[in-house]
Write a protein that binds this DNA or RNA. Sequence first.
DNA 1: GTCTATAACTCGATAGAC
DNA 2: GTCTATCGAGTTATAGAC
Lengths: 185, 185
Amino acid sequence: MTARDELLGRSVAWFAEHGVGDTSLRTLAAGIGTSHRMLNYHFGSRAGLLGAVVEAVERAEQDALRELVATHEDPFEAGALFWQHVADRAAVFAPLFFELSTHAMRGEPHAALLRRWFAEGWSDALADGYRRLGVDEDRAATLALQSLAMARGLLFEVAVTGDRAAADTAMVRWTAMVRRELEAP
Amino acid sequence: MTARDELLGRSVAWFAEHGVGDTSLRTLAAGIGTSHRMLNYHFGSRAGLLGAVVEAVERAEQDALRELVATHEDPFEAGALFWQHVADRAAVFAPLFFELSTHAMRGEPHAALLRRWFAEGWSDALADGYRRLGVDEDRAATLALQSLAMARGLLFEVAVTGDRAAADTAMVRWTAMVRRELEAP
DNA sequence: GTCTATAACTCGATAGAC
DNA sequence: GTCTATCGAGTTATAGAC
């Protein structure tokens, strides 16, 4: 366990408990028993620290999705459970997720790793799921992209409006639409 | 034309030309012929200024959508044209849009207006379109939410990965899915 | 109401000593 | 790795001119 990993773990725990908000490096540092100078030393910048936090959370979430897909006969059931899991954490991590993704959109160097993480990890995991249902390569790629877009868009809605029920309904009906598409010729 | 409106118009134009990035108030002020003190005076804060910019852009976009829906027989055709319009501007305004939406997610006071703008404007406009196709109230609301989520999710993908072609394909196929849903009993 | 000028405070980032 | 400045920038506040 390096000093960096130790600080990263404590930062994730601190954010999970106190929320992310506009917490300053000084406030966070005081909260986890270090100095803002040390956070800059280990992570290069505030954005570098937040990027590492998001990457750690995303890695855990992607692992959770693969685990659910692997342990459930019905991929759609795994998807439903995963949506619940993600939406439950929306209030805490969605703002940080969308904030950091704007850094990736602007091509900022510290967000390069995050950019690849956003771009490849989720699409690949979802496309795998659709291929296992016997969908051909081309359709699987599009369905994966659509499912990812739908999930992120609904996550956005939940985070902004707080209307979880409407988003849940939309997700259930989206899943039903895909089912019917796959059963049709 | 108040001084505030004048500065807002020049700010939007400046951002459209130079991009948003991490432009400082001082840089922007110098670029549009004022001082950073005046920007704070008229908009309250940097976030207040950016919020006003996003609101102005969103208002124009929502008006454009209503205009397209009103002038086209086929609402799906209007939707396709609008998607093109929005995706073309993704590189410039998507980062700012998602950044400001995180302020709304955190319930920051200066983003209160923006929050309502995000939450109500688009859903209402889209639900109107579906109702005009004879869809009942409950389904129209869900379809509007799904269409909004799909569009924002694909906009997110375009902004992060730059893969416009994949997003266009996903949008075309989404529209086809909805068409089939509405034709089925 | 609009604008200029100035100062103080916080925060992110950096340099240098140890 | 750690600590003590130090700087630029966003923000807020005050005083005052037009």
